[in-house]
Amino acid sequence: MQLDDTDRRILRHLLAEPGMATADLAERAGLTTATCWRRIERLREGGVIKGMRAVIDWRRLGWEVEVSLRFTLDKTHPRAFDEFLAAAREVPEVLEIQTFLGQTDVRLNAIARDMAHWQEIYRERILNLPHIQDTEALMLISAIKDSAELPL
Rank of each mutant, 00 (worst) to 15 (best):
1 M>P: 01
2 Q>N: 09
2 Q>L: 10
4 D>C: 11
6 T>F: 15
6 T>P: 06
8 R>G: 09
10 I>N: 00
10 I>T: 07
10 I>V: 11
13 H>S: 05
14 L>R: 05
15 L>R: 04
17 E>T: 13
17 E>A: 02
17 E>Q: 14
19 G>D: 14
19 G>C: 10
19 G>E: 15
20 M>A: 12
20 M>L: 15
20 M>T: 15
21 A>P: 04
21 A>H: 02
22 T>R: 03
22 T>K: 00
22 T>M: 05
23 A>M: 07
23 A>Q: 03
23 A>H: 04
26 A>G: 02
26 A>H: 04
27 E>R: 13
28 R>Q: 09
28 R>T: 02
29 A>W: 12
33 T>Q: 03
34 A>D: 10
37 W>N: 01
37 W>S: 01
37 W>Q: 02
37 W>R: 02
38 R>W: 01
38 R>D: 03
38 R>I: 09
39 R>W: 04
42 R>N: 08
44 R>Q: 15
45 E>D: 13
45 E>F: 07
45 E>S: 11
45 E>L: 07
46 G>P: 02
46 G>A: 15
47 G>A: 15
50 K>W: 09
50 K>S: 09
51 G>A: 13
52 M>A: 04
52 M>T: 13
53 R>A: 12
53 R>I: 02
54 A>E: 13
54 A>C: 04
55 V>D: 08
56 I>Y: 14
57 D>W: 14
57 D>L: 14
57 D>A: 15
58 W>S: 02
61 L>C: 04
64 E>M: 12
68 S>L: 12
70 R>D: 00
71 F>G: 02
72 T>K: 11
72 T>W: 07
73 L>C: 01
73 L>I: 00
75 K>I: 03
75 K>Q: 13
76 T>H: 14
77 H>M: 05
77 H>S: 06
79 R>N: 09
81 F>W: 13
81 F>H: 05
83 E>S: 07
83 E>P: 05
84 F>R: 10
85 L>I: 12
92 P>I: 01
93 E>K: 02
94 V>F: 08
94 V>K: 06
95 L>N: 09
98 Q>M: 10
98 Q>Y: 10
98 Q>A: 10
101 L>V: 13
101 L>C: 08
102 G>D: 14
103 Q>Y: 00
104 T>E: 10
105 D>Q: 12
105 D>M: 10
106 V>E: 03
107 R>M: 09
108 L>Q: 04
109 N>F: 07
109 N>A: 08
111 I>A: 03
112 A>F: 08
112 A>Q: 01
114 D>N: 12
114 D>V: 10
115 M>D: 07
115 M>R: 05
116 A>C: 06
118 W>M: 05
118 W>Q: 02
119 Q>I: 10
122 Y>P: 01
123 R>K: 15
125 R>F: 08
125 R>M: 11
126 I>C: 08
126 I>W: 00
127 L>Y: 00
128 N>A: 10
128 N>G: 07
128 N>I: 05
129 L>F: 02
130 P>T: 00
130 P>W: 06
133 Q>I: 00
135 T>G: 07
136 E>W: 04
136 E>L: 14
136 E>C: 07
136 E>A: 14
136 E>R: 08
141 I>M: 11
142 S>F: 13
142 S>T: 01
143 A>V: 00
144 I>R: 11
145 K>E: 14
145 K>R: 15
145 K>Q: 11
147 S>A: 08
147 S>I: 08
148 A>K: 03
148 A>C: 03
149 E>L: 10
151 P>H: 14
151 P>W: 13
151 P>N: 15
151 P>F: 13
